[in-house]
Computed example of a mutant assay.
Amino acid sequence: MATKSANLYARIEPEVKEQAEGILSALGIPASNAINMFYKQIILQRGLPFDVKIPSSRPIDMSALSEDQMNLEIEKGYADMKAGSAKTASKAFADIRKDYNL
């Protein structure tokens, strides 16, 4: 293994740093190791190891919808539920608690 002797200085939003380090701590991974893993993935992928793009859809501002538009969104959700492509709120929250060790 190569000696770790290079320094990296980066400015990051304090809240982002705190949240990420909390997750890394729960995983038992020091931030410096995570950064090293990220850089190695950049090398292996010959670019960022994830897509960097503007999402094709944005979250819907429910407060800006008319009653007809709101009903249409509710119908879409109901159709997703009936098709089995949605999970219950309790399952979603259980997954979040499991994923973030809450």
Rank of each mutant, 00 (worst) to 15 (best):
Q19N: 11
M1E: 10
I12H: 01
A2P: 07
A26D: 09
I35A: 14
A2L: 13
S66W: 02
I35D: 02
A34V: 09
S25G: 10
N36E: 12
D51T: 14
I74M: 15
A86E: 00
I54H: 04
Q45H: 06
K53L: 05
A92H: 05
K40F: 07
K98I: 11
T3K: 15
S90R: 04
K4I: 08
Q41R: 14
A92V: 15
G47K: 06
L102S: 04
G77E: 03
L102R: 07
N36V: 08
R11H: 08
D61P: 05
I74F: 15
L48N: 04
K91W: 12
G77Y: 02
I23P: 00
L102W: 04
N7P: 08
L65K: 01
A86P: 02
K53T: 09
K53P: 00
L8A: 06
K53D: 05
A26P: 01
S56L: 04
A20L: 15
F38R: 12
I96K: 06
I74T: 14
N33Q: 14
I29P: 10
E15P: 00
Q41W: 08
T88N: 05
A89G: 07
T3R: 15
D68S: 09
A10Y: 02
K40D: 06
L27S: 08
M81G: 14
G28E: 08
M1H: 13
F50E: 03
E67N: 09
K91D: 15
N7E: 10
R46S: 12
S32G: 14
L48S: 01
V16H: 08
P49N: 00
L8V: 11
P55S: 07
L44Q: 12
S57K: 14
M70H: 05
A20I: 15
N36M: 06
P30T: 01
V16W: 06
M81I: 11
S5C: 03
K17Q: 10
